[in-house]
């Protein structure tokens, strides 16, 4: 049985945040499994620049080989077979830092390619067979449903089509954290750790 390769992408500006506590439980849960290798990117710790630049726009369709700023992330994406994302939901989506990571890292040659004459993108992340998102929402599940869960759909539709056709999606979400009791918060962290047994 080959080893599971999990790539964890974490995005929150504060180390004492609830999202960081969730990250710790993600890593603890994965560490309990003997068959898992883990790589982690902490975008704020990396001081990642989320702004897709004019230069990147110009070299948009070139090979990614010279793009050293994203090389490590691209390498991790090619290496893993399970992508685990930990972020708070702000304004119904991932924080801008993480959206910028998608804009800048999922480029031609990393996530997709457009062969000459083709009209559709060819996905390049076929090695990824599972996407797990661990996130928190300030507002309730009802409000998020009315808003259309835009963030969930970025991961489970827009990013998923670049991955393996049978990619499994798992949404580990905490709704209504603004009004939640400590007991509920602790229960969610337990759920996060348990969810890592099946990613």
């Amino acid at each position: 049985m080959s080893r599971r390769r999990c790539y964890v992408v974490y995005c929150h500006p504060l180390d004492d945040s609830f999202a960081h506590a969730a990250l710790e439980r993600v890593l603890a849960g994965l560490a309990r499994r003997p068959d898992v290798d883990v790589r982690l990117s902490d975008l704020y710790a990396d001081d990642f620049s989320p702004e897709f630049s004019l230069e990147e726009r110009r070299t948009h369709k070139d090979s990614p080989d010279g793009k050293t700023e994203i090389a490590e992330y691209a390498d991790n994406l090619r290496w893993c077979d399970s992508l685990i994302v930990v972020h708070p939901t702000w304004f119904s989506g991932p924080p801008a830092m993480l959206k910028g990571w998608l804009d800048r890292v999922l480029v031609q040659g990393v996530a997709w390619t457009l062969p000459d004459g083709a009209s559709r993108l060819k996905p390049l992340l076929r090695n990824i067979r599972a996407i797990t998102v661990v996130t928190t929402h300030g507002s309730s599940k009802l409000i998020n449903s009315l808003q259309g869960e835009a963030g969930k759909r970025i991961w489970f539709r827009s990013v998923r089509v670049l991955c393996h056709p049978l990619t499994r999606c798992r949404w580990v979400a905490f709704y209504g954290i603004d009004r939640a009791s400590d007991a509920k918060r602790r229960a969610f962290l337990g759920r996060v750790e348990r969810a890592m047994q099946r990613v």
């Binding site: 897709f52 304004f91 924080p95 801008a96 959206k99 910028g100 990571w101 998608l102 835009a150 970025i154």
Partner: peptide
Amino acid sequence: TWWSSMPAVLKGWLDRTM
């Protein structure tokens, strides 16, 4: 529209201003 949503700079404008 990039990755079915707005560019990070606009998402960040919402995050930080709204």
